[in-house]
């Protein structure tokens, strides 16, 4: 039986990732258990064994873990951010007072791409409304 290759490690300490979620728990308060947000570093985007960071909502709060990115066909996240390493580093920097404002700004400017993997209705059911609204995604692009 062929073994799945181990994901390449990100440069982030898992404890730092969890600490970020714990520090900003209120931001995810409306998101329901089972929801998952993926962060795939831009530099790893085309790698067949790319590792992505996954934030999963549980009854106890958001939990950070690494998963292999299996491609768009099979990825099991609701939203998939494609930040560069620097954005990821700043996001997890404990000295950054507004890490998510930084990320949102980059999404709005499309410096960080965000794939919407689940349909809108599914996202609303999972409690993403306020999160999506704050990103200003709906009215970006050609028809602005």
């Amino acid at each position: 039986m062929q073994r799945t290759p181990e994901p390449e490690p990100l440069q982030l300490d898992p404890a730092e990732c969890q600490a970020l979620l714990d520090r900003h728990a209120p931001l995810f308060a409306g998101i329901k258990a089972g929801a998952r947000i993926g962060l795939l570093p831009e530099e790893n985007f085309d790698s067949t064994a790319a590792a992505m960071l996954v934030w999963e909502a549980t009854e106890q709060g958001m939990v950070a873990a690494y998963r292999r990115f299996p491609g768009f066909d099979a990825v099991e996240v609701d939203l998939l951010f494609i930040p560069d390493h620097e954005t990821l580093r700043r996001l997890h920097d404990p000295a950054n007072p507004l890490p998510f404002a930084d990320l949102k700004r980059k999404v709005r400017r499309r410096e960080t791409l965000l794939y919407v993997v689940k349909p809108r209705a599914g996202l609303l059911d999972l409690g993403y409304e306020e999160f999506l609204d704050s990103l200003g995604l709906t009215f970006m692009g050609a028809c602005r």
Binding site: F72, D73, L80, L113, L114, Y115, V116, V117, K118, P119, R120, L123, L132, L137, T138, M140, G141
Partner: peptide
Amino acid sequence: VVPQTLPHFRPP
């Protein structure tokens, strides 16, 4: 199969 980057479309 490339997901959209806006939230109001159907899965590809």
